[in-house]
Design a protein around this nucleic acid. Structure first.
Length: 287
RNA sequence: GGCGUGGUAGCCAAUCGGUUAGGCAGCGGUCUGCAAAAUCGCUUAGACCGGUUCGACUCCGGUCCACGCCU
């Protein structure tokens, strides 16, 4: 098989993506582009398992620790940055390696995003409406009238409903009509994909070990500092797994053992969601 | 040893003589600008034995277990 022009390594959290990516980068003269919505942020390195200084010295990593908590990460921006990184790496004759577990970002990047209109200000305005009962009701009625199909589909899901209305308002047509559907193939030629899918028991063990490791690395301390620096007031970064659980532990709600259990459980649930996403949303990557 | 209270699913926890408790965990989905998010669906009961009853997780008796009090 010829050398790929792009290598993709993905899988659920704690499956060993990063170490494989590191090995492949050294073997194939590559650079790693993180596909991870949370590794984007500075200040939550331990909890989001960002590459260590030593690892970053071995291989160049892109899109890690580039944002402050105040920045709202989003797919569109991510795709833009990742595309540029891919082009940049390739132009220097190296192999770009996409490594990470944010399936949503990976799908958008590789499958392509339709050119739907967007207006963050309008979205924010609609979102604010949702905070009052009357506003929510009005918005639902408006949506049911303007775009019944999208309303039926997303009526329980605030964010998607708002986005659907945003698109409907801006484009004059339904978001469902404007979307081209499940991508058939990867937009980048000559891409090789590796899915790491450990067996359930194996993955559970790996998650448990990795959680222990994170705590040993000083995760709680990191969390304390991140919280002091406004993690919970951030638009997106506060969603990083574990930090709110640690905060509750620090507030005395439960002991350390319980914290560990809760974090492991939450991590497992996350891994399962990732698995489902890979199976059904990223199947276009495996021929 | 006596008295009392209680034993409900992996865990927590209600109700009830006939009709889905619920929550958590678990499992399966959804996913096009917050995705480590949000959201939908499904599954698992009545400690044990006997009795009453058309019908018992529910009422009665016994056994076992747990907790509390007394001796």
């Amino acid at each position: 098989m010829q050398k790929p022009s792009l290598l993709v390594i993905t899988g659920p959290t704690a499956s060993g993506k990063s170490s494989l990516a590191l090995k492949e980068a050294e073997r194939l003269d590559g650079e790693i582009i993180s596909v991870d919505s949370m590794q984007l942020y500075r200040g939550i390195e331990i909890g989001t398992a960002q590459p260590t200084a030593e690892e970053r010295a071995r291989v160049v990593h892109h899109l890690v620790g580039i944002y402050d908590f105040s920045v709202r990460a989003e797919v569109f921006t991510f795709c833009d940055l990742a595309e540029k990184a891919i082009a940049d790496i390739q132009s220097r004759g190296k192999l770009p390696i996409l490594a990470g577990g944010t399936g949503f970002y990976l799908k958008a990047l590789l499958g392509g995003l339709d050119d739907l209109p967007a207006d963050p200000a309008l979205r924010q305005e609609l979102d604010a409406l949702y905070d009052s009962d009357e506003g929510e009701k009005a918005l639902h009625e408006r949506m049911a009238f303007l775009d019944p199909a999208a309303f039926e589909r997303w009526k329980n899901c605030r964010r998607r409903l708002i986005r659907a209305l945003e698109v409907r308002l801006l484009a004059g047509r339904s978001i469902t009509e404007l979307q081209s559907g499940q991508p058939e193939k990867c937009r980048f030629p000559n891409t090789k994909s590796i899915f790491i899918m450990p067996e359930t028991e194996d993955l559970k063990k790996r998650i448990s070990l990795r959680c222990d490791h994170m705590f040993e690395q000083g995760w709680i301390d990191e969390a304390r500092q991140a919280i002091a620096r406004g993690l919970f007031d951030s638009p997106t970064a506060h969603q990083a797994l574990g930090y709110s659980l640690i905060a509750r532990h620090l507030a005395g709600e439960f002991d350390f053992e319980t914290l560990k259990d809760l974090v492991e459980t939450a991590t497992w649930q996350f891994a399962r969601r990732q698995r489902t996403y890979f199976r059904h949303q990223l199947d276009f990557l495996c021929p």
